[in-house]
Deep mutational scan, measured.
Amino acid sequence: GATAVSEWTEYKTADGKTLYYNNRTLESTWEKPQELK
C-alpha cells in the first residue's frame, strides 16, 4: 500500500522559529503537529 505522506511543510522564519503549514487543510501552526511526532 501507499505510505501516507505528511501533509505538513516546515518553514523556518527569519527569527529562527519553525512554522508548520498543512497543505491539505491550509492550516498553519507553531506547534509541532501530531503527525510529525
Score class of each variant (00 low, 15 high):
9 T>Q: 09
25 T>A: 01
7 E>S: 05
8 W>M: 01
29 T>Q: 11
37 K>A: 13
15 D>F: 04
15 D>K: 03
30 W>S: 12
37 K>H: 12
17 K>T: 08
1 G>E: 11
17 K>H: 08
33 P>S: 01
6 S>Q: 13
34 Q>H: 10
32 K>N: 06
37 K>G: 14
8 W>R: 00
3 T>E: 11
19 L>G: 08
1 G>Y: 13
4 A>K: 11
22 N>K: 00
20 Y>T: 00
37 K>I: 15
28 S>T: 14
26 L>K: 15
36 L>T: 08
31 E>D: 11
10 E>D: 02
13 T>V: 04
33 P>T: 02
23 N>S: 14
6 S>I: 08
14 A>T: 09
16 G>K: 02
36 L>V: 08
29 T>S: 12
34 Q>D: 15
2 A>Q: 13
22 N>P: 02
14 A>H: 08
29 T>L: 05
2 A>F: 12
8 W>P: 01
34 Q>V: 12
1 G>A: 13
27 E>S: 03
17 K>R: 15
22 N>M: 00
16 G>E: 01
23 N>K: 11
17 K>D: 07
10 E>G: 01
9 T>L: 10
30 W>N: 09
34 Q>G: 09
34 Q>F: 11
2 A>G: 13
10 E>Q: 07
19 L>N: 03
20 Y>H: 02
28 S>Y: 15
6 S>D: 10
10 E>I: 09
1 G>F: 12
1 G>D: 13
27 E>G: 03
16 G>I: 00
28 S>W: 15
33 P>Y: 03
16 G>M: 01
32 K>T: 09
29 T>E: 02
2 A>L: 13
29 T>M: 06
4 A>P: 12
27 E>V: 06
29 T>I: 07
5 V>I: 14
17 K>S: 06
31 E>P: 02
30 W>C: 12
36 L>F: 08
9 T>M: 11
35 E>S: 09
31 E>Y: 04
21 Y>H: 07
11 Y>F: 14
12 K>F: 09
13 T>E: 04
25 T>R: 00
9 T>D: 04
23 N>A: 08
35 E>V: 05
35 E>D: 11
22 N>R: 00
28 S>Q: 10
1 G>Q: 13
13 T>S: 08
16 G>H: 02
24 R>F: 13
37 K>F: 13
10 E>H: 04
11 Y>L: 15
20 Y>G: 02
9 T>F: 10
16 G>V: 00
19 L>P: 01
4 A>S: 12
25 T>V: 01
10 E>T: 07
24 R>K: 14
8 W>H: 00
26 L>F: 13
26 L>E: 11
17 K>I: 03
19 L>A: 07
27 E>C: 15
3 T>P: 12
32 K>H: 03
33 P>L: 02
30 W>K: 07
7 E>T: 05
16 G>P: 00
18 T>G: 01
31 E>L: 06
22 N>W: 00
24 R>M: 14
37 K>P: 09
19 L>K: 08
3 T>W: 06
26 L>N: 14
35 E>Q: 07
